[in-house]
Structure formats: C-alpha cells, structure tokens
C-alpha cells in the first residue's frame, strides 16, 4: 500500500520565462508538508500541476497512488487558494447547496459545525465578508467533504495572527487521522514552522531541500563571527554565508559538530526564515 498521498517525480514544466526543472518530492500520509520559497519560485505552478490545472511537459505526478489527471482523485482533495473563489452574490448556504451536489461525500452536518465554530453567518452575501471570513469559509468548504488531502496555496497570506492561529489549529486536528496529509505553501514561514512536519524549499524552479522540520530547526544554526574567524572556517562546514557591516554569518547544517570543531564561535538557532533567506540570498560557500 502506498504510504504517500502525493508523489512527484522529475516534474518538468517550461514557460517562456520560467522552468520548473525536474522537481521530485513526496507528501507522506499523516504529515503536514510546508512548501516555501520566494514569489515566482514555482510553488503555485507546482500546485497547479498537481491539480491538473495546467499541463505538465514531463515527469510523473501520482495522487493517492494513481494518476493525478483522474477526476475521481479530486473527490478526496480539499483545495484552498490564496483568495476566495466564490461569487460575492452568494451566501454560505448557497455555497453549501452547490458543493453538496458536487462532492459525493459532502457532510452537511460537519459543514454546519464548522460554520458554528467559526461564527460565520449563513445568509449574508459573501461580498460583505472580511478577508478572514472568506478564507475561513474556503477552508470549511475544502474540509466539509472529508478529504484525505488538503492542498493550500498561500491560504493564510493576508490574514491576521488570530485567524491564522484558528486555521492552523484546524489543520492540526485534520492531521490526527493518519491517512490525511496537508500540503501547505506559504510565504509566512512562522506558520510552516508551527505546524509542518516536513519542509520543502523551492527556488527558481528547483527543489533546494526536502527535510524534516525538526532537523532544520534543531540541527541547523547560524555562526556569527568576525571576518578573520570566518576565514578559518572550512568551506565544507557551512552551506551559505552573508557578510554584514559588523560581522559575517554563515548557515551550518550541524551546529553541534561545528561547535565542537570551532571552540570559540557563537552559534544561534536558525529559524525557517533564516534558513530560507540564507539559501536564497546568502552567498554560497
């Protein structure tokens, strides 16, 4: 039995000014996978390819162990994009009537439970909803047909911390079922850091790393030292460096090993944002 809900192998897509270059990764069952990268790195393109919204030029995409182009796989996928895609003239009740006739497994009771929980009005037009309310509704709609896989493309972008927190909690509840997975792209690395099990960094259409979040957070570190000290650090011991006005900083993969090797240097913990910035903007070793 397949242990991945998504398997992407050597996925290739060429546009006039951008290439998604043979990327491979997997989304295991029971896991939340964060997908990070700067604007235009290829996050949305990858998601659109998985959802078969655009046509791939090469490679393989499997969803639930089967070809991603089959309509049936979409029954088990909940999707949330960066904006609410429902017409402003609709009410939440209208949306329920539409989607309950689209998804075979639509659960009206669950939908109404979520509506109560998030205190969303049933009969108000969506045009009068705030952005946070619209995103909550989009997420409720993505979950009310009891999918096995949630795909979220910048779903928390532009939301205030309180709403983001409520939504992240919902994803953590969703993942309690070990058959479920969440594939979550976001600019907000703190959200990914909070809930993801794995992190994939994409940069200029290439996967830079696919790592366990705990490995990134607990093992990676940032060495801060003067230029003379930096010159003594072996280039194999760091991934990338950047020179600031006051010091030189470098990202190391194993901070304990570096600490042992170089006795008198300061190593800070690296956040996901630090790691992403080092990979994207830092000068390479």
């Amino acid at each position: 039995m397949d242990c991945n809900n998504i398997l992407v192998r050597n996925l290739y897509k060429k546009f006039d000014s951008f290439v998604l270059d043979n990327i491979s990764f997997k989304i295991p069952k029971g896991r939340i996978v964060g997908f990070i990268g700067e604007n235009g790195a290829g996050k949305s393109t990858t998601i659109n390819l998985i959802l078969n919204e655009i046509k791939k030029d090469g490679g393989e995409i499997q969803v639930f162990g089967t070809d991603h182009t089959k309509y049936s796989v979409k029954e088990d996928i909940g999707v949330v994009f960066d904006e609410c895609n429902f017409h402003d003239v609709f009410t939440a009740d209208n949306i329920e009537k539409i989607l309950s006739r689209v998804y075979k497994s639509w659960d009206s009771t669950l939908y109404h439970q979520y509506m109560e929980r998030f205190k969303l009005p049933h009969n108000k037009q969506l045009g009068s909803f705030s952005k946070g309310m619209k995103m909550k509704l989009s997420i409720i709609c993505a979950m009310a047909h009891r999918p096995k896989l949630l795909i979220l493309d910048e779903a928390t972008t532009g939301l205030d911390p309180v709403v983001r927190d409520e939504i992240l909690d919902l994803f953590l509840e969703f993942i309690q079922n070990e058959e479920h997975s969440v594939f979550f792209s976001s600019h907000i690395t703190s959200d990914i850091q909070k809930i993801a099990d794995y992190v994939i960094l994409i940069h200029k259409g290439r996967i830079i790393f696919e790592e366990q979040k705990d490995n990134l957070i607990y093992n990676y570190g940032i060495v801060k030292c003067g230029r003379e000290k930096f010159a003594s650090i072996d280039t194999d011991d760091y991934i990338a460096h950047r020179i600031t006005n006051v010091s030189t900083e470098c990202l190391v993969r194993d901070k304990e090993a570096v600490k042992r090797k170089y006795k008198d240097i300061v190593i800070d913990r690296a956040t996901l944002e630090d790691i992403m910035l080092f990979y994207i903007k830092g000068g390479t070793a």
């Binding site: 959802l51 078969n52 919204e53 309509y71 049936s72 796989v73 979409k74 029954e75 996928i77 999707v79 994009f81 904006e83 895609n85 429902f86 017409h87 402003d88 003239v89 689209v102 998804y103 075979k104």
Partner: peptide
Amino acid sequence: ASDDNAHWKKYQMALPVS
C-alpha cells in the same frame, strides 16, 4: 463574466467534475 471576477474557473478545475 462574474465567473471571471471571482476567479471561479481556478476553483472549478479543482472540483471532481469533468
């Protein structure tokens, strides 16, 4: 035309409909 304004097509393509 209102489908265009709501970017409905993007969402619709993710639904299990032919």
